[in-house]
Protein backbone atom coordinates (compact mmCIF):
# COMPACT_ATOMS: atom_id res chain seq x y z
CA UNK A 1 0.00 0.00 0.00
CA UNK A 2 1.67 3.19 -1.17
CA UNK A 3 1.19 6.29 0.94
CA UNK A 4 1.61 9.82 -0.41
CA UNK A 5 1.81 12.59 2.14
CA UNK A 6 1.34 15.77 0.17
CA UNK A 7 2.18 19.12 1.75
CA UNK A 8 0.40 18.30 4.94
CA UNK A 9 -0.08 21.15 7.32
CA UNK A 10 -1.80 20.90 10.68
CA UNK A 11 -2.85 23.77 12.88
CA UNK A 12 -4.35 23.31 16.33
CA UNK A 13 -6.24 26.14 17.92
CA UNK A 14 -5.16 26.46 21.53
CA UNK A 15 -7.02 29.18 23.43
CA UNK A 16 -6.92 32.22 21.20
CA UNK A 17 -3.89 31.38 19.15
CA UNK A 18 -3.21 28.77 16.52
CA UNK A 19 -0.20 26.58 16.82
CA UNK A 20 1.27 25.12 13.72
CA UNK A 21 2.12 21.54 14.51
CA UNK A 22 2.98 20.26 11.04
CA UNK A 23 4.22 22.36 8.18
CA UNK A 24 4.55 21.21 4.60
CA UNK A 25 5.23 17.59 5.36
CA UNK A 26 5.87 15.92 2.07
CA UNK A 27 6.76 12.28 1.89
CA UNK A 28 6.14 9.52 -0.53
CA UNK A 29 6.18 5.99 0.82
CA UNK A 30 6.32 3.05 -1.52
CA UNK A 31 4.27 -0.08 -1.18
CA UNK A 32 6.01 -2.47 1.21
CA UNK A 33 8.48 0.09 2.44
CA UNK A 34 9.49 0.61 6.06
CA UNK A 35 9.81 4.22 7.16
CA UNK A 36 11.21 5.17 10.54
CA UNK A 37 10.35 8.57 11.93
CA UNK A 38 12.47 10.12 14.66
CA UNK A 39 12.09 13.53 16.19
CA UNK A 40 11.85 15.33 19.48
CA UNK A 41 8.86 15.07 21.76
CA UNK A 42 5.97 17.20 20.59
CA UNK A 43 7.20 17.62 17.01
CA UNK A 44 3.99 16.19 15.60
CA UNK A 45 4.79 12.53 14.94
CA UNK A 46 1.61 11.17 16.52
CA UNK A 47 -0.38 13.89 14.80
CA UNK A 48 1.05 12.85 11.44
CA UNK A 49 0.12 9.21 12.05
CA UNK A 50 -3.39 10.26 13.06
CA UNK A 51 -3.78 12.14 9.80
CA UNK A 52 -2.50 9.20 7.75
CA UNK A 53 -4.91 6.84 9.49
CA UNK A 54 -7.86 9.18 8.99
CA UNK A 55 -8.46 9.75 12.70
CA UNK A 56 -7.63 13.41 12.23
CA UNK A 57 -7.52 15.60 9.16
CA UNK A 58 -4.94 17.92 7.66
CA UNK A 59 -5.58 21.65 7.77
CA UNK A 60 -4.01 21.81 4.34
CA UNK A 61 -2.65 19.23 1.95
CA UNK A 62 -3.71 15.63 1.78
CA UNK A 63 -2.76 12.03 2.25
CA UNK A 64 -3.35 9.74 -0.69
CA UNK A 65 -3.35 6.00 -0.21
CA UNK A 66 -3.42 3.75 -3.25
CA UNK A 67 -4.75 6.65 -5.28
CA UNK A 68 -7.50 7.57 -2.83
CA UNK A 69 -7.50 10.66 -0.64
CA UNK A 70 -7.89 9.76 3.01
CA UNK A 71 -11.00 11.13 4.66
CA UNK A 72 -13.07 9.91 7.58
CA UNK A 73 -15.04 7.53 5.40
CA UNK A 74 -12.35 5.44 3.72
CA UNK A 75 -12.38 1.80 4.64
CA UNK A 76 -9.50 1.12 6.95
CA UNK A 77 -6.88 -1.19 5.64
CA UNK A 78 -4.51 0.62 7.91
CA UNK A 79 -3.59 -0.64 11.34
CA UNK A 80 -2.41 1.59 14.14
CA UNK A 81 -0.43 0.65 17.21
CA UNK A 82 -1.31 3.54 19.48
CA UNK A 83 1.30 5.19 21.63
CA UNK A 84 -0.70 4.26 24.74
CA UNK A 85 -2.01 0.68 25.05
CA UNK A 86 -5.70 1.70 24.85
CA UNK A 87 -6.95 -1.69 25.99
CA UNK A 88 -10.49 -2.35 27.14
CA UNK A 89 -10.20 -2.70 30.90
CA UNK A 90 -13.21 -5.02 30.98
CA UNK A 91 -11.82 -7.48 28.45
CA UNK A 92 -9.24 -10.20 28.98
CA UNK A 93 -5.96 -10.24 27.05
CA UNK A 94 -7.52 -12.76 24.69
CA UNK A 95 -10.63 -10.68 24.03
CA UNK A 96 -8.63 -7.49 23.59
CA UNK A 97 -6.46 -9.13 20.95
CA UNK A 98 -9.45 -10.73 19.28
CA UNK A 99 -10.95 -7.27 18.86
CA UNK A 100 -8.30 -6.65 16.20
CA UNK A 101 -9.73 -9.31 13.89
CA UNK A 102 -11.86 -7.74 11.20
CA UNK A 103 -12.17 -10.68 8.82
CA UNK A 104 -15.12 -13.00 9.08
CA UNK A 105 -13.70 -16.05 10.79
CA UNK A 106 -15.19 -18.98 12.65
CA UNK A 107 -14.78 -19.22 16.42
CA UNK A 108 -12.14 -21.91 16.00
CA UNK A 109 -10.12 -19.90 13.50
CA UNK A 110 -10.25 -16.86 15.73
CA UNK A 111 -9.11 -18.85 18.72
CA UNK A 112 -6.18 -20.30 16.83
CA UNK A 113 -5.13 -16.94 15.53
CA UNK A 114 -5.40 -15.26 18.93
CA UNK A 115 -3.28 -18.01 20.45
CA UNK A 116 -0.66 -17.57 17.74
CA UNK A 117 -0.30 -13.85 18.41
CA UNK A 118 -0.35 -14.26 22.19
CA UNK A 119 2.61 -16.60 21.80
CA UNK A 120 4.28 -14.20 19.40
CA UNK A 121 4.30 -11.35 21.90
CA UNK A 122 5.24 -13.66 24.77
CA UNK A 123 2.06 -13.48 26.81
CA UNK A 124 1.27 -17.18 26.98
CA UNK A 125 -0.32 -17.93 30.34
CA UNK A 126 -1.91 -14.48 30.55
CA UNK A 127 -4.80 -15.15 28.16
CA UNK A 128 -7.40 -14.62 30.87
CA UNK A 129 -5.72 -11.72 32.63
CA UNK A 130 -7.33 -8.29 32.68
CA UNK A 131 -5.31 -5.23 31.61
CA UNK A 132 -5.00 -3.89 35.16
CA UNK A 133 -3.30 -7.12 36.12
CA UNK A 134 -0.53 -6.57 33.57
CA UNK A 135 2.61 -4.45 33.66
CA UNK A 136 2.90 -1.47 31.33
CA UNK A 137 5.13 -3.37 28.92
CA UNK A 138 2.77 -6.34 28.85
CA UNK A 139 -0.17 -4.06 28.09
CA UNK A 140 1.83 -2.59 25.25
CA UNK A 141 2.45 -6.08 23.86
CA UNK A 142 -1.29 -6.74 23.88
CA UNK A 143 -1.72 -3.48 21.97
CA UNK A 144 0.85 -4.63 19.40
CA UNK A 145 -0.72 -8.08 19.07
CA UNK A 146 -4.16 -6.56 18.55
CA UNK A 147 -2.85 -4.64 15.54
CA UNK A 148 -0.73 -7.45 14.11
CA UNK A 149 -3.60 -9.95 14.20
CA UNK A 150 -5.52 -7.71 11.84
CA UNK A 151 -2.83 -8.17 9.17
CA UNK A 152 -3.39 -4.73 7.68
CA UNK A 153 -1.85 -3.67 4.38
CA UNK A 154 -0.16 -0.76 6.14
CA UNK A 155 0.69 -0.50 9.80
CA UNK A 156 1.49 2.68 11.67
CA UNK A 157 3.37 2.09 14.91
CA UNK A 158 3.65 4.95 17.39
CA UNK A 159 6.60 4.24 19.66
CA UNK A 160 5.53 0.63 19.89
CA UNK A 161 8.48 -0.75 21.81
CA UNK A 162 9.28 2.23 24.01
CA UNK A 163 8.04 0.61 27.21
CA UNK A 164 9.84 -2.68 26.69
CA UNK A 165 13.13 -4.04 27.95
CA UNK A 166 15.98 -4.34 25.43
CA UNK A 167 15.58 -8.08 25.01
CA UNK A 168 11.81 -8.11 24.38
CA UNK A 169 12.21 -5.08 22.18
CA UNK A 170 14.75 -6.72 19.85
CA UNK A 171 12.62 -9.83 19.76
CA UNK A 172 9.52 -7.94 18.72
CA UNK A 173 11.44 -5.86 16.18
CA UNK A 174 12.44 -9.12 14.53
CA UNK A 175 8.91 -10.50 14.70
CA UNK A 176 7.56 -7.40 13.02
CA UNK A 177 10.25 -7.69 10.34
CA UNK A 178 9.29 -11.33 9.77
CA UNK A 179 5.68 -10.35 9.29
CA UNK A 180 6.78 -7.60 6.94
CA UNK A 181 8.82 -10.07 4.87
CA UNK A 182 5.87 -12.43 4.65
CA UNK A 183 3.05 -9.94 4.07
CA UNK A 184 4.94 -7.04 2.53
CA UNK A 185 3.14 -4.67 4.85
CA UNK A 186 3.94 -0.99 4.48
CA UNK A 187 5.28 0.10 7.86
CA UNK A 188 5.68 3.50 9.45
CA UNK A 189 7.43 3.34 12.79
CA UNK A 190 7.73 6.33 15.07
CA UNK A 191 10.49 5.86 17.59
CA UNK A 192 12.79 7.71 19.96
CA UNK A 193 15.39 5.01 19.59
CA UNK A 194 17.80 5.84 16.78
CA UNK A 195 19.20 2.32 16.62
CA UNK A 196 15.69 0.98 16.26
CA UNK A 197 14.99 3.48 13.49
CA UNK A 198 18.04 2.36 11.55
CA UNK A 199 17.51 -1.33 12.24
CA UNK A 200 13.94 -1.26 11.00
CA UNK A 201 13.73 1.45 8.36
CA UNK A 202 14.43 1.51 4.65
CA UNK A 203 14.64 5.22 5.29
CA UNK A 204 14.91 7.24 8.46
CA UNK A 205 12.89 10.44 8.47
CA UNK A 206 14.23 13.02 10.88
CA UNK A 207 11.68 15.61 11.96
CA UNK A 208 12.33 18.84 13.76
CA UNK A 209 9.83 20.73 15.80
CA UNK A 210 7.93 24.01 16.02
CA UNK A 211 6.58 23.63 13.47
CA UNK A 212 7.11 19.96 12.70
CA UNK A 213 8.88 19.61 9.37
CA UNK A 214 10.78 16.84 7.69
CA UNK A 215 14.34 17.87 8.25
CA UNK A 216 16.11 15.08 6.51
CA UNK A 217 15.45 11.71 4.98
CA UNK A 218 18.33 9.31 5.43
CA UNK A 219 18.28 6.13 3.35
CA UNK A 220 19.48 2.98 5.05
CA UNK A 221 20.93 0.84 2.33
CA UNK A 222 21.99 -2.07 4.46
CA UNK A 223 21.00 -5.64 3.74
CA UNK A 224 18.67 -7.37 6.18
CA UNK A 225 19.21 -8.78 8.71
CA UNK A 226 21.17 -5.83 9.93
CA UNK A 227 24.06 -5.92 12.31
CA UNK A 228 23.68 -3.23 14.92
CA UNK A 229 27.35 -3.38 15.84
CA UNK A 230 28.70 -3.20 12.30
CA UNK A 231 30.63 -0.23 10.93
CA UNK A 232 28.05 0.55 8.23
CA UNK A 233 25.42 0.74 10.90
CA UNK A 234 27.65 3.03 12.94
CA UNK A 235 28.15 5.27 9.93
CA UNK A 236 24.43 5.76 9.47
CA UNK A 237 23.92 6.21 13.17
CA UNK A 238 26.43 9.01 13.05
CA UNK A 239 24.57 10.62 10.20
CA UNK A 240 21.30 10.54 12.11
CA UNK A 241 22.88 11.85 15.28
CA UNK A 242 24.48 14.73 13.40
CA UNK A 243 21.00 15.81 12.34
CA UNK A 244 20.16 16.27 15.99
CA UNK A 245 23.41 17.78 17.11
CA UNK A 246 24.71 19.29 13.92
CA UNK A 247 26.87 21.88 15.59
CA UNK A 248 29.21 19.36 17.16
CA UNK A 249 30.76 16.81 14.91
CA UNK A 250 32.72 15.72 17.97
CA UNK A 251 29.57 14.74 19.74
CA UNK A 252 28.75 12.43 16.91
CA UNK A 253 32.18 10.84 17.24
CA UNK A 254 31.67 10.58 20.92
CA UNK A 255 28.33 8.87 20.62
CA UNK A 256 29.81 6.19 18.43
Amino acid sequence: MGIEIKNVKKVFPIKNSNIEVLKDVDLSIADGEIISIVGGSGCGKSTLLRIISGLDFATKGEVVIDGKTVDGSTKKDIGVVFQEPRLFPWSTVEKNIEFGITDKLTKEEKKKKVKYYIDLVGLTGFEKALPHQLSGGMQQRVNIARSLINEPKALLLDEPFGALDAFTKINLQNEVLKIWEKQKTTLIIVTHDIDEAIYMGNRVVVMSSKPGVVKKVIPVELPRKRNRTGTDFAYIRRKVYSEFFEETEELAEYVI
Binding site: S53, K76, F82, R86, F88, S91, F99, G100, T102
Partner: peptide
Protein backbone atom coordinates in the same frame (compact mmCIF):
# COMPACT_ATOMS: atom_id res chain seq x y z
CA UNK B 1 -12.63 9.00 22.87
CA UNK B 2 -9.34 7.11 22.80
CA UNK B 3 -11.19 3.83 23.15
CA UNK B 4 -13.74 4.89 20.54
CA UNK B 5 -10.85 5.46 18.14
CA UNK B 6 -9.81 1.85 18.66
CA UNK B 7 -13.26 0.91 17.38
CA UNK B 8 -12.81 3.19 14.38
CA UNK B 9 -9.38 1.83 13.50
CA UNK B 10 -10.63 -1.74 13.54
CA UNK B 11 -13.62 -0.78 11.45
CA UNK B 12 -16.21 -1.99 13.93
CA UNK B 13 -19.91 -1.60 13.26
CA UNK B 14 -22.01 0.82 15.32
CA UNK B 15 -23.56 -2.11 17.11
CA UNK B 16 -20.22 -3.57 18.09
CA UNK B 17 -18.94 -0.21 19.29
CA UNK B 18 -22.07 0.15 21.39
CA UNK B 19 -21.85 -3.25 23.03
CA UNK B 20 -18.11 -3.66 23.29
CA UNK B 21 -17.05 -0.11 24.14
CA UNK B 22 -19.84 2.29 25.06
CA UNK B 23 -21.96 0.09 27.33
CA UNK B 24 -19.08 -1.45 29.26
CA UNK B 25 -17.58 1.99 29.92
CA UNK B 26 -20.96 3.19 31.12
CA UNK B 27 -21.51 0.19 33.39
Amino acid sequence: PKLLEVGTIFDKSKREVLFRIIFPSAA
